[in-house]
Design a binder for these strands. Structure first.
Lengths: 348, 348
DNA sequence: TAGGGTCCGGTAAGCGCTTACCGGTAAGCG
DNA sequence: CGCTTACCGGTAAGCGCTTACCGGACCCTA
């Protein structure tokens, strides 16, 4: 721990008060718009604040108010350090985070960002440390077990993203089911593909599970043949998608007519791998994604995918958390609509 | 402002103390590893902390210590809301931010992220508000005027990214000059291109200025013809790059043999626009970027660019700030090396 | 067994702010 | 003209934590 005690000439409200010739209470009142100070007093204070360029200390304020005006966001980063894979997977999470941030600003809150390494042992302790510095927490997918969340939740309000609500925490997610159903329907009904593969994301991700399930049931309902499971397991990354395809091809497996990927990053890797092997997309194999990350439209061919309102997702998470913090209660399970985005990688 | 005063049953150190049958001083000492508590006392406290799952309040701690263990990071986001352009430009900044974050964690710090809209009037007040909640600030490119920085800097230590050091603030940047020189040399000497265009970034960005200058002088030194200026002005975004190319083409201008873009995003837009117009890259026009953002290698053709150690940039910024915060002083101007990455878009 | 030195651990003072409470002044009323 | 009422603004307490300071217990030595 660093150890300065008074780095700078640390102005306090006392300095402002004496400079303005009023009491600290008046200064505080003016700064917070409480009470009804006489215009003259008010002006004197503002003048002093301006002259000294005083900024009140957030910690003191927080302590006094019981409100830090800070929310914490916790998410996983890729490998230990600066691996390629990590960089690739930035997009999705970062867009969500920006959504959170923008929403937070509207309420005068700021956002404490904290990532956790994949094989970081004590996630719980990191999270706890953030909890101490924030009024509430937003947890990205797969951060903590249900028990962990429960324990956390009686420290501070907790919102999870793409998880499931618990008795003590709230959740915000997208409507994976209907998005996936629409996608499969498009592939089977509109294009007439009879054999589809699902290249999964992390097995323990609720998003992945519901997408897989919807994929399976819809395809079955439409009478299409389905390929998935062990060999088809990715990890939401481009590298993961490429690896699966390469392994399949090396094993001489006959690819299905369309590969439905758990997310856009995976699709990106799949298309890359396919291109390297000289397999035409969508001519020989169609590929689809999920998320509609910005780069999706810049791929060759442009990626057919399901658009999640990614930034909205973050903004909503904040709003839910905020209403919990300030009003004391909020909706526990919010589901956002998605939209099928048909571009060219499906064969259109 | 929200107005809860005691949201939860807020555990305090007093609760822990009485639960453990010791004084609050002992609890604090155990928690901070100060003094030399008797093993038994120590154990009692830890036990109590565990049982109550107590987490000390960050604000109180900060107030008492004069150290919040938080640094603020301020950057610009694109348009007002959820525009396409905004999404596109995520990459660069976010990688830096992640670098900051990882470095911060190593020191037990957390990162307060705050973005500012492009046409946000009172940047200064937003920044000030962050300043009150942090021990130091990292400002991305083009956030504040020199005066603004000066004023800010006597509130808290300030590090700028890709700016220039001021008497009171520190700066971290990459070696644009040598990167650009190497790139131009490659284009002119190795490929023999005689006519080069520089598609700029924001005019008021120090990075852009030094790249433009290096481009110009090196090209001149090698006797190549240079095209730049008014019509060649982008804004670091893909859309900006595409717009310039389209305008040029519409005006019937003869494009130079190679287009050197101020950054990768711009190059991405340029390549896209060129492709739409049926112009072969690099066959008819070579295109290069700057940054080596992760997607650069997934373009068609893969982008020749100058790699900046982006994540390092962030990490270094934090380290500099940290040493200033804890040791009271630090280097004022840190320059990181870059590396020419030759892929295919240059014609190789 | 008494005196001195060590350790531990408790008490209390503050960190910078908000705000309940109260006293003083001025305006309003009879 | 004196008393009430209202309105400002000041004083002080307290938010949860760290830590300086001090007193007590224990151990060692003579």
């Amino acid at each position: 721990m660093a150890e300065p005690r008074k780095a700078k000439g640390t102005l306090t409200i006392y300095d402002v008060a004496s400079h303005a010739g009023v009491s600290i209470a008046s200064v505080s009142r003016v700064l917070n718009g409480q009470g009804s100070p006489r215009p003259e007093t008010r002006e004197r204070v503002l003048q002093a604040v301006r002259e000294l360029s005083f900024v009140p200390d957030g910690a003191a304020r927080a302590l006094s108010n019981g409100l830090k005006e800070v929310v914490g966001v916790v998410f996983r980063r890729g490998g230990e350090a600066f691996t390629e894979d990590e960089d690739e997977s930035l997009l999705f999470i970062d867009v969500i985070n920006r959504g959170i941030e923008v929403a937070a600003q509207n309420r005068g809150f700021d956002v404490l960002m904290s990532s956790v390494g994949v094989h970081d042992e004590n996630v719980a302790s990191r999270v706890a440390s953030i909890a101490g510095k924030a009024d509430g927490l937003i947890l990205h997918d797969r951060m903590l077990s249900a028990v962990g969340i429960a324990r956390l939740a009686d420290l501070v309000p907790v919102v999870t993203l793409a998880g499931s609500p618990t008795p003590v925490s709230m959740n915000v997610r997208c409507d994976n089911e209907s998005g996936m159903r629409a996608l499969v329907r498009h592939l089977v009904v509109d294009h007439g593909y009879r054999r589809l593969g699902y290249l999964s994301g992390h097995v323990d991700s609720p998003d992945n599970r519901s997408r897989a399930r919807a994929f399976e049931t819809e395809a079955a309902a439409l009478g299409a043949e389905v390929v998935q499971g062990g060999d088809w397991q990715g990890n939401y990354s481009a590298a993961g998608g490429a690896k699966v395809v390469n392994a399949l091809l090396d094993a001489g497996v006959q690819l299905p007519r369309a590969i439905v990927c758990a997310n856009d990053q995976t699709a990106l890797g799949v298309m890359h791998a396919l291109a390297r092997r000289g397999i035409a997309v969508p001519g020989q194999v169609a590929v689809t994604g999920f998320d509609d990350v910005p780069v999706a439209r810049h791929l060759h061919p442009p990626l057919t995918t399901v658009r999640q309102p990614i930034q909205q997702l973050g903004a909503t998470a904040f709003d839910v958390l905020y209403s919990r913090i300030s009003a004391g209660s909020a909706e526990r399970d919010v589901v956002l609509p998605v939209q099928l985005i048909i571009r060219e990688s499906c064969g259109c």
